[in-house]
Design a protein around this nucleic acid. Structure first.
Lengths: 203, 203
DNA sequence: GCTAACCTAACAAACGTTAGATTTGCCATG
DNA sequence: CATGGCAAATCTAACGTTTGTTAGGTTAGC
């Protein structure tokens, strides 16, 4: 926003994101957060009213950001195909090279107090809904084989977010390559195109 | 094992699984665990040397169980198709109706101390390898379109495990239905069978 | 009567949080 | 330009609670 470097409050938020990602919210100490932010323990309370508020502000900002960036960027694309590909690409990017904040958004839901939890869930549902709309459109326009839109949206989101659980920097694949393989898998499945339709035996 | 009901040690383990799943490992208190197990706080240390050991024993037992049940049950099936379907079914089942222990196995890895962590990771890799073998076999025998076996195995595992993050009892779908839809999606993808091969534009 | 199982009571450390003192940056005023 | 003052920012030091853990005594079962 301002030209004058980050404010201390923003520094604290950024360091909190790194710390929470590294150790988890509960295992993170305000004293260590203060140390990393170059400040004394009690000083944090001048910017935030509690440790919980830091987590909430972090997740709230990030969720708003994710939703806005996703919805505006797919608005420019004209086919459900291109939109789904882009959404997958962006979702994976969010959870890997993306700021630490997006990682936390997935993992620390459990540690939100009830009111905060409710508010973040609303946003998460909103985010998921964007995927649902893409899928519904593909079903209507491109005749995608989808038995349940919501179930599929969840499956895709979880599959992509799950990348965080195994991806390490310097992996043999780049983000783009992973995204492309996931997209291709979802679109085409495992079976070879044009192969004989072997009746799959039930059981 | 024995006919004489569960031993107290087993009760503690079972209650620990429930508690850890409900509140998470770090947020769970040994005093509350003791209360639920019908025992006084300090008594737990007669059965376990630390809180950490409870978590490890829990995950270790569960991992061994999951690996054994998966590998013996797919050994009876004769096609990669049937094996993949069964593996998906079992993996989803593990993470929903399955004992609380399997849930924890996914979620509490971060809270294992380094040596324990290393040992559980070995088992997790072993579990994943079973999926990789099924996929490799399908690629060789049924000409599945797979560009990277390991990547695909991870995608499947994460997608299925992710069910825990949204599934609630009394959901409109049963475990079987979810598993079948996931399996069908993986096999066939979104595109309609026999549809024209529209060249997907790179971009 | 011995051993495993369990209880009681406490300790030391770490934590989130708070209150009060101190410093810093800024701006109006002389 | 200097200066006084005010509010925001930060520091210091502590409090009260909770936590994992431990030591020693007590009970129960074979």
């Amino acid at each position: 926003m301002s030209v004058t470097g980050r404010s201390r409050k923003q520094i604290i938020l950024k360091e909190a994101a790194r710390l929470f990602r590294e150790k988890g919210y509960l295992a993170s100490t305000l004293r260590e957060l203060a140390r990393r932010a170059g400040v004394q323990g009690g000083s944090i309370y001048h910017h935030f009213s509690s440790k919980q508020e830091i987590l909430f502000v972090l997740m709230d900002n990030t969720m708003n950001d994710m939703i806005e960036r996703l919805s505006t960027s797919i608005a420019e694309l004209d086919s459900p195909l291109a939109r789904l590909r882009h959404a997958i690409r962006l979702h994976i990017e969010y959870h890997i090279i993306g700021p630490d904040e997006t990682y936390i958004t997935e993992d620390e839901l459990r540690n939100l107090e009830s009111e905060n939890y409710r508010r973040i869930i609303v946003q998460r549902d909103h985010y998921q809904q964007i995927f649902e709309e893409i899928i519904a459109e593909g079903k209507a326009c491109l005749n995608w084989q989808v038995s349940d839109v919501k179930l599929l949206a969840r499956a895709i989101i979880q599959m992509c977010a799950g990348v965080t659980r195994w991806y390490k920097p310097n992996d043999k694949f780049s983000i783009d390559e992973i995204a492309e393989q996931y997209f291709s898998l979802l679109l085409n499945g495992l079976k070879e195109r044009g192969a004989e339709e072997k009746q799959t035996q039930p059981l």
